[in-house]
Design a protein around this nucleic acid. Structure first.
Lengths: 215, 215
DNA sequence: GTCTATAGTGCGATAGAC
DNA sequence: GTCTATCGCACTATAGAC
């Protein structure tokens, strides 16, 4: 978390008025954490900056030292999440491994990442439509970029004849939907006492039976 | 659409101040249509009742003849969608048909319904977290009720040994996620020129290969 | 670097004319 | 049954003290 905030601080150093890194990182962490908590309860629009100020312990004036508008706060959080996703996912996928193993690693990587940062991903998903057109486009590109990782793995498997997939793009889309369900419907899986490992195991088995070549 | 609004009118006749059905149904249709359009662009919270008034052509005062608060408007729309979903889905599933056919019918029924009423379902999904606790519970019960339809079909298929499913509840959850993706990511499928029939065919094939008994 | 105080805007909701 | 006018309030954003 601290690392993420440091990253955000350095990327937005020109628009952030606070210059001491230690102070800025500490406060950014509080701002992000509180924003995610309040927004995921009742939505980003409904959360007033007064709420954020009260709950985070920073005054209204202090908040505006870290962003120039409420919309920019939204964008900062979204952007940080996107960059992290691509970084983690590509790190999870061993470039030299066979496709079947890559697929398993990519599914686990996605689930573990979104498990650890569930509020972040839930927030990004739910608030995307409240962004302006330009920022929405960036969000869409982010979704397609991670989907592309899965398409590439499926196509590689087809070429090596270890997968049989009628339509890699559609298959990757469905897989993405099932991966996202994990952080979108946490209430459901928590209620059923399903752990991220159980979900991962089941989803991997489900996918493998769907892409397995006919005998 | 008119039928839906008439249904809503009759169910909420005591809280709606307008007594002439023809007038009420016409205006309710305008209110719902405009609310869905504006909310799906920028969120229900962001849409002010002044926006709604301007776009729907009804004055502020007139709007308040149809609901007693902005929150009640949200609830009316959600509730109507839930009742319709259960009605249509159960109508689609032929009670006497074999499980494999039931599964196909349920998938098609869900997709066609959400295709025709996409804004309605998108709205319900996105705005659920903005409801109060009691109403959220109703929304969750609605989701579990439709999921139950799929669980029952899968379990019936297992009993008749035409399906092989390790975990019908998990399988139904994943299926639900894939069904919902159709109305949540319309931009993606529209961009790829994928029709609801193509999506249905693909998803049915995908599911059938996943539940097919090992030879 | 953070605070308090406040300007200015726009909201949800209602009363009363027509 | 619908409209206009308006109330009281909470909001985002900023200016200036510390």
């Amino acid at each position: 978390m601290e690392e993420i905030c440091r990253d955000t601080f350095r990327k937005n150093q020109d628009s952030i008025k606070i210059k001491k890194e230690a102070v800025a990182v500490k406060n950014l962490a509080a701002i992000f954490h509180t924003t995610l908590r309040l927004s995921n309860e009742k939505g980003f629009q409904t959360m007033s900056l007064r709420d954020l100020s009260r709950t985070s312990g920073l005054s209204m004036g202090a908040l505006y030292s870290y962003f120039t508008s409420k919309d920019e706060l939204l964008e900062m959080i979204q952007d940080q999440g996107r960059r992290l996703t691509l970084k983690i996912l590509t790190a999870f996928i061993d470039i030299g491994a066979p496709p079947a193993e890559k697929l398993r690693a990519a599914i686990r990587g996605h689930l573990y990442l979104t498990e650890v940062m569930q509020p972040w991903f839930y927030f990004s998903y739910m608030e995307t439509k409240n962004l302006d057109k330009r920022r929405q486009k960036k969000a869409i590109e982010g979704e397609l970029a991670t989907e592309k990782l899965f398409i590439d793995i499926l196509e590689e498997g087809v070429r090596q004849k270890v997968f049989q997939v009628a339509d890699p793009v559609m298959t990757a889309s469905l897989l993405k939907a099932m991966l996202q369900d994990w952080y979108l419907k946490r209430w459901k899986y928590a209620g059923r006492r399903i752990s991220v490992d159980q979900y991962a195991d089941f989803l991997i088995g489900f996918m493998e039976s769907a892409v397995r070549p006919a005998p």
